[in-house]
Design a protein around this nucleic acid. Structure first.
Lengths: 359, 359
DNA sequence: CTGAAAGCGCTAACAC
DNA sequence: GTGTTAGCGCTTTCAG
């Protein structure tokens, strides 16, 4: 950890005029402490602290004096000091693999609202594709900068499960391994995928493609199994050539996968993509090679992001209860924080099939 | 601030089994301090601290002893304490109005990469529509929980500019008021909007609609003026009935605005929406009333989010240099942190028109 | 090269 | 009711 280099002044920006060599006092307009307020109010620091924390045993007149001093001085408590003392930061972290994926936005709102109700701040971390970064956020936890975390990133979760991070106060959301003792919330991916495939089956499709993410992830394996079993349950032998595994959920990834799939001799007449972003890319890719949706190829997505209803054709998809997923994850974490030794529950929330125009 | 209620155990979650009444010691598996490591290594805390911070003046043998003790104990530095001592948190905040809007995702990545290069963590805050929340994030700054902030939310920026937050270490991104002494980075909204409209004019459109956000925001006023001047510059008198102001950038908002616009007697033959999300909604709304894009109505968006190329028809739009916007914002903030008294530059980055199928 | 000791700003006993 | 004081875990002079 090279703190030296990291403190270097960043490269100049066009239009910037930095005074060279001059290093003014840090926090020039900064630090009035509780002691200063105490002095101004003519009381002790303890009394100021009491007022700050709403303790009852302060005479109203004294309280007013303190409040006035706080007001006049523009004093703000230094949470760093408070937190060091109380050994809690009141900060919760939420790790997402990609803030650009709208699927996470609504989950994050659910988390935020519950966190806020309980006096916590929720801050978002984008783990990106970077494996080093994944771990650094857990370090935030280890180093007490956050009280707890909710992880939505399957890659991070897999990695974290491997390490000895059981003791850390975090919960998994949308991806998990029940065999590991970390609280989690998600949906029944196996059944959900089956529901999607059975919908396609009911529409008369026999050759159904699967565009999946990485089977390193449990959710991907579960959805694949749901897909496979639904097919065989209908007397169809799944052709491996119908299946693709991607390491991205980007639109572009979906588009090119769809193109690949159509080049097959017995190309699927329907495609089930495990994410709406993928499915939207699939529709685009299909269109780019002259296929019409749903007439030539039907498409089913997964998640039901708000965009799903807006595109042409509107996307048939599996809806996840995103808001509730987030709220539940937050509650699980809060429970764990309140009672670190309690049993860790696993919660499964209901999904549902939303039929629109694409399949 | 009722810390009392906020500490309450959250409502039970289905499947949860919480042991009642039992309050185990907090941080059971938690706190080994620097003193513990010092003891195990048989050195003083000062020496451990030196090793931790990579100071040179430690004999290799001593260093190894300390490192071994750290390793054996699984010790992690308590950043709270370190930060209290050094009076910095090494945390940067980025406030966005809506994490669900993909426009912000790439900007956020730009910020994150620069922050990371300089040894800072970047954490994201969703200000949402909630005005109370807006301010609470600035409080994070005031209370020293973060060293600096980058604000992407026009509403927050407007409000912050009004208050006496000039002294706080933050910069504005994509929305600003040059008359206020806060560093900012953005694009030339006036010219960009003009470019969009001139493209439509060149395509032969005379009746051009504008779907804008709230004109309380400077960027919205600038884009409106660009739109207006481009029209009058072409000898066209803008009809106020062609203009709509929305307080949301959601797809749905764009869709219903488009429907409204088409109901006008002399309905526009082209629509310029100030956000791609809005434009995507517009296309959907148009289609819902049987209008074809671009044959019946042409549509131009703004931002060039990755989705813009994926929809049908692909969206013609004004591209903002999102990654650079974020990187520049981060650099401005870092400069300001390094030199709080230096001049605050304003930076304008180039935009460009991307012509696709929708107009 | 290493140790002792002084705080950073705050909370919480414990006195009065 | 209010004040005094002892730390929270760390970094950093200042001695040696």
């Amino acid at each position: 950890m090279s703190r030296t280099s990291s403190k270097a002044v960043p490269a100049a920006v066009s239009g910037a005029s930095v005074l060279p060599e001059v290093q003014p006092p840090l926090q020039a307009a900064g630090g009035l402490s509780i002691a200063g307020v105490a002095e101004q109010a003519g009381v002790s620091v303890a009394t100021v602290s009491r007022v700050l924390n709403g303790h009852e045993n302060v005479r109203p007149a004294t309280r007013d004096k303190v409040l006035a001093a706080i007001d006049a001085s523009g004093y703000r408590v230094n949470e760093l000091a408070r937190n060091l003392r109380t050994a809690e930061s009141r900060l919760l972290l939420t790790m997402v693999p990609d803030v650009g994926n709208p699927f996470y936005a609504e989950i994050v709102r659910g988390i935020d609202s519950v966190a806020r109700q309980h006096g916590y701040f929720m801050l978002l971390c984008d783990t990106g594709a970077d494996p080093g970064r994944e771990r650094s956020y857990f370090d935030l936890l280890r180093r007490r900068r956050a009280d707890g975390a909710i992880c939505l990133d399957p890659a991070t979760i897999q990695q974290a499960l491997g390490e000895a991070s059981h003791a850390l106060p975090w919960v998994a959301c949308c991806e998990f391994d029940p065999s590991v003792r970390v609280p989690y919330v998600g949906i029944d991916n196996y059944r959900a995928a089956g529901d999607a495939v059975r919908h396609l089956l009911a529409r008369g499709h026999q050759r159904i493609g699967l565009i999946n993410s990485d089977v390193d992830y449990l959710y991907a394996r579960q959805r694949q199994q749901g897909y496979l079993d639904a097919l065989t349950g209908a007397g169809i032998t799944p052709d491996p050539a119908w299946r693709m595994n991607l390491n991205s959920l980007d639109y572009e990834a979906g588009a090119s996968a769809a193109v690949t799939l159509t080049q097959h001799a017995h190309a699927p007449s329907a495609i089930f993509a495990v994410s709406d972003t993928l499915a939207i890319g699939v529709i685009h890719g299909l269109r780019s090679v002259g296929k019409r949706v749903p007439d030539d190829v039907a498409v089913v997505g997964f998640d039901d992001i708000s965009l799903a209803a807006q595109i042409d054709p509107p996307l048939t998809t599996i809806a996840q209860p995103m808001r509730e997923l987030g709220e539940t994850a937050a509650r699980l974490l809060l429970q764990r924080l309140a009672n670190p030794l309690a049993n860790v529950p696993g919660v499964l929330l209901p999904h549902r099939l939303v039929v629109r125009g694409s399949a």
